[in-house]
């Protein structure tokens, strides 16, 4: 799922400064699962903003709403009758949300209430880690199911670099060297010799280097 982090309250207060009617808008997709942008977090952020406004003696309403998803136009459309009533919408979906909202409602100021950080999974309740960089050409099966693109700090394809020490990456003792994990796992699986294959330079055109990506499925497109 897409993982996000709450923005500092000061930043959000600055965004909505002077804007009377504000809507805090959540998303029931990834950000609900990673506890940063669902109905619960909408309630917490909206309540916090209301406290700040009451404390400062400023008028204005902060309302709450959560859409099924903010990355599909049909759900964005649900706001058609009410979007114009707001002086600001604070979207706490991933970066797609505020963009879709701005495109559909060009006259309404839309602000991002969270920072979208990475594609990852939950290691345990409350802990998430990056697992995918959406490079557009998945190769994890060659590396024991461990992704050297997302999990190696240098995205190396051919073994660990000189910065790998005692299974840790040189950038931080908290970061596992994924190549250490790959070699250990492949050896345990009896597949170590597969790692002798030398990978040519990766074609990054399928990743962001090829520019913004669009996927068209002719079988689904209306």
């Amino acid at each position: 799922m897409i993982i996000g982090d709450t923005k500092p309250l000061e930043e959000i207060l600055e965004m909505i400064e002077g804007r009377e009617r504000v809507l805090v808008l959540g998303c029931r997709g990834c950000v609900t699962v990673c506890n940063v942008g669902g109905e619960k977090e909408v309630g917490i952020l909206a309540t916090t903003l209301r406290i700040a406004r009451k404390k400062a003696g400023r008028p204005g309403a902060v309302e709450e709403r959560t859409l099924e998803r903010q990355c599909d136009p049909e759900y964005i459309e649900e706001l058609a009758d009410v979007a114009g009533d707001y002086d600001a919408i604070v979207s706490i979906a991933c970066g797609v949300g505020p963009q879709f909202l701005s495109e559909r409602y060009p006259d309404v100021r839309v602000f991002p209430g969270i920072n979208t950080t990475f594609i990852g999974g939950a290691l345990e309740h409350g802990v998430w880690a990056e697992r995918c960089q959406s490079c557009g050409n998945c190769l994890v099966h060659h590396f024991g199911g461990l992704c050297p693109i997302a999990r190696c700090s240098k995205s190396l394809m051919n073994g660990p670099c000189g910065g790998s020490a005692s299974g840790k990456c040189e950038i931080s003792p908290d970061v596992d060297c994924v190549w250490h994990l790959i070699v250990e796992k492949m050896a345990k699986m009896g597949r170590a010799e597969e790692l002798e294959k030398v990978w040519p330079t990766k074609n990054w055109l399928t990743s962001r280097d090829g520019g913004p990506r669009v996927r068209i499925r002719e079988d689904l497109k209306q």
Binding site: K40, G43, I44, T47, T48, R50, I51, K54
Partner: peptide, 12 residues
């Protein structure tokens, strides 16, 4: 819940 606690402060 965090919301219970915050709502108390919202109510002053």
């Amino acid at each position: 819940d965090i919301l219970h606690l915050l709502r108390a402060f919202e109510d002053g």
